[in-house]
Structures are given as structure tokens and as C-alpha cells.
Amino acid sequence: MSLERDNPDKPRDQPLTPETMAAEWSTMPATFEEDGEQEGGTDRLMSQDEIDTMLGFSSAEDSASRNGIQAIVDSGSVAYERLPMLEIIFERLVRLLSTSLRNFFTDNVEVTLESIRSVRFGDYVNSISQPALLSVFKAEEWDNFGLVTIETALTYSVLDTMFGGKRGQPAPRVDGRPFTSIEIQLIRRVIQLVLGDAEAAFKPLSPVTFTIDRVESNPRFVSISRPANAAIRVELKFDMEGRGGSLHILLPYATIEPIRELLLESFMGEKLGRDPIWENHLATEVWQADVDVTCVLHETRMPLKRVMQLEIGDTLMFDARPDSAVSLRCGDFMVTEGRVGRVDGKIAVQVTSPLRRSKTTLAAFDSLASHLGATN
């Protein structure tokens, strides 16, 4: 069997053997471009930056800028809408806890807000390192549950501080034994303190009461939501002069759903851009405005043909008596009803029924503005 090669320099009928083809290929010169790439090929070594870009690994912490393989790995992560008011609430909680814990421990305690992230409940429970104390609490007004997790380092640091341990030294950790009832009750007091300050932080936005339901040491016993459901994890860092740890507050999205609209606001008391000064001025002007009120004694309907046949001297009969109620109208709107009488020689109307209020309220304007904002 012979192989043929399409070469304009040689006739097509000249046979080529594999040995001659290999010899010719080995003698062919390799031409390179200025950048080191072979013509028609991509034989070039990649730099470390290009490898990191392809894999998606970089020193930046912003997950939104990731690409490559890392972006594919992170595609299963939870990404939900941002709640600006929630960040303000937990920053307020940090300030309240800094004061409360200093008074509680009679020692210097620094509390910092590490992160606020969206996670899946099942992934978070599986990531808890044991031993750890987990407290399930109930939000009474929201009719749902949340979770407070105290890591082992913080647990032993709190216990060491409460029992008078030396400052500046890490708390000794005893592995291989569960927490005693005394230790759980002491940690329960700290959890109650954290939840009390959380109530004060949420109070300006929506009053709520957090009550401890139970304290567990096994993550399997804190199933307050389905594993695939989303939740917000807030990490607080406690530093007590060289010792401390992290405390996590987990709020499922189902728990904060009753106040979701309030958490979407950019600042406390936001109401779709309304100006309260303009509202007060408008209310004052409306209160002082003069309106014409018409007293309608009686109304009747008749065909247009009958109206066209009316002549001078015709009498229209009204089915009304002197004590019949009359209607007071402002334009086309009926305000109330009354009875006609005379006071000091002047005709007067006595109001006999309460005023009829307009069905158009500020709530209607709010709903209309929300609808227009959603459509735009």
C-alpha cells in the first residue's frame, strides 16, 4: 500500500512511503511568530495569571467577578436579593451587644460583624463543627423559628471568663466530653442576652419577641427548616482580650417573610419617596380650603320626551314631605343627609347621618405607586 501527498512541486502520481514521509517531516523547519506561537497552532506555555483566570481563582473576595471553573463550582450557591435594612439592624445589634456584654462580664468585650450571607440550611448544619451549642428560638410575632450557634472556642472562652479565668490566655479546651448542665445554663444566659438585644435592634422596624425554645448540642436536633431552603447567616466575632470566638445567627427566609417589604427599604421609614413635609403642607391647605355644599331637596327622573313637552304653567309633583331627608352634596359626591328647618328666621339643615368618607386613601396611593414601580 502506498500513500500519496498533494504537493504542487511533485507529480501526483509519485508514490510516498511512510519512511520517506517521516524523513521529510523531520527535516521541515518550524516557523514561529514574534510572540512565540507556531503558525497555524497554539503551542505556547501559559502564564500563571492565565491559568488562574481559566480556573477562576484569584485573590479578590468578590464572588461576582469569578469566572472559569470556579464560577461553575459556585453556580450552585445561594444568591438572593439584598436586604439593606437587615444590615442596618445587625450593625445596631453589634453596638447594643458591645455595651451589654461589657456589663455582663465586667470586662472588655469587642463585638464585630464579620459577614451576612445567604446559605442553604442543610449546608450550614453540615458545616457546624462539633462540639457546639445550638439554641433554637422562636419569633412570636412572625410565627417561625431561628437558630443561634455558639462555636466551641467562644463557648469555652465565655465559661472561662465567667469562672474567673486569667486574661490574655486562651481558654483550655476539654475534648471528648459533652457540656454539663451548669455550662449549658450559663451559655443560655448569654443567648438570652443576645436575643434581648436583637429584639431592641428590630423594634424600630417591627416589634418582635424572641424566646428560647431549646438548647441542643447535636445539629441533627435543630431542623427548623428543610435542607434545601435558603437562610441568612449572620456571623458575629467576639474578642475578650485574646480569647473569644464566633457566634452565628441563622434566620430562614420564611422567618423574615412577614417583614420582607420593610427589609427592602434603604432607610428606616422609607415610604416610596413621599415627602412628609409636603404631605403636612397639603393636609393643612386642604383643611383650610373652602368648598360649596349644595342642599338637594328632592330628585326625580322622567323621560326626555316628557321634558321636551313641558310648557309654562305645568306643575311637577315631587314625592316628598316636609320632614323628608335631604342630601348635602359637594359637587357630584354625596357628603351626608339632613332635615330642613328654620333657625332665627333663616333656612337651616340639620345633619342626621355621619359623614361619608372617601374610599380613596393613602394606602390606595401606596399600592398604585408600588404597581407603577413594578411595571417600570
Rank of each mutant, 00 (worst) to 15 (best):
M1F: 15
S2V: 14
L3Y: 13
L3D: 15
D6H: 14
Q14C: 12
L16I: 10
L16H: 11
P18Y: 09
P18N: 06
E19F: 11
S26W: 11
F32T: 11
L45V: 13
L45P: 04
D49P: 07
T53I: 10
M54G: 03
L55E: 03
S59L: 14
A60P: 03
E61I: 08
S63P: 04
I69A: 02
Q70M: 12
S75L: 09
V78G: 00
A79M: 11
Y80W: 14
E87Y: 10
E87M: 03
V94I: 01
S98G: 15
S100C: 06
F105K: 03
D107S: 14
V111C: 02
S115G: 07
R117H: 07
R117W: 05
G122C: 07
Y124D: 05
V125Y: 03
S127G: 10
I128H: 01
Q130L: 10
A132L: 05
V136D: 01
E140H: 13
W142Q: 04
F145D: 03
I150A: 03
A153C: 04
L154R: 00
T155Y: 00
K166D: 15
G168A: 05
G168S: 01
G168M: 05
Q169D: 11
A171H: 10
A171V: 07
R173N: 13
R177F: 07
P178N: 08
S181G: 08
I184W: 01
L186R: 01
R189G: 10
L193V: 00
V194A: 02
L195R: 05
G196N: 08
A198V: 04
E199C: 03
A200D: 05
L205W: 01
P207A: 06
V208L: 05
T211R: 11
D213Q: 10
R214P: 05
R214E: 01
E216L: 09
S217W: 02
N218I: 03
A228V: 07
R233E: 04
F238I: 01
G242Q: 04
L247W: 01
H248E: 00
I249Y: 05
L250A: 08
L251I: 07
I256M: 06
P258S: 02
L264M: 01
S266V: 12
S266Q: 15
M268D: 10
L272V: 12
I277E: 12
W278N: 09
H281P: 01
T284G: 12
T284A: 14
E285Q: 15
E285L: 15
V286A: 13
Q288I: 08
A289E: 11
V291T: 14
D292P: 06
T294I: 11
C295W: 00
H298V: 08
H298A: 12
E299D: 02
T300I: 12
M302T: 11
L304H: 09
Q309E: 13
Q309F: 00
G313C: 06
T315S: 01
L316P: 05
R321Y: 15
S327Q: 09
D332W: 09
F333S: 11
M334S: 14
G338L: 02
K346T: 11
I347P: 01
A348R: 13
P354H: 04
R357T: 11
K359N: 10
K359P: 08
T361Y: 07
D366P: 00
A369I: 04
H371P: 09
L372S: 08
A374Y: 14
T375K: 15
N376F: 14
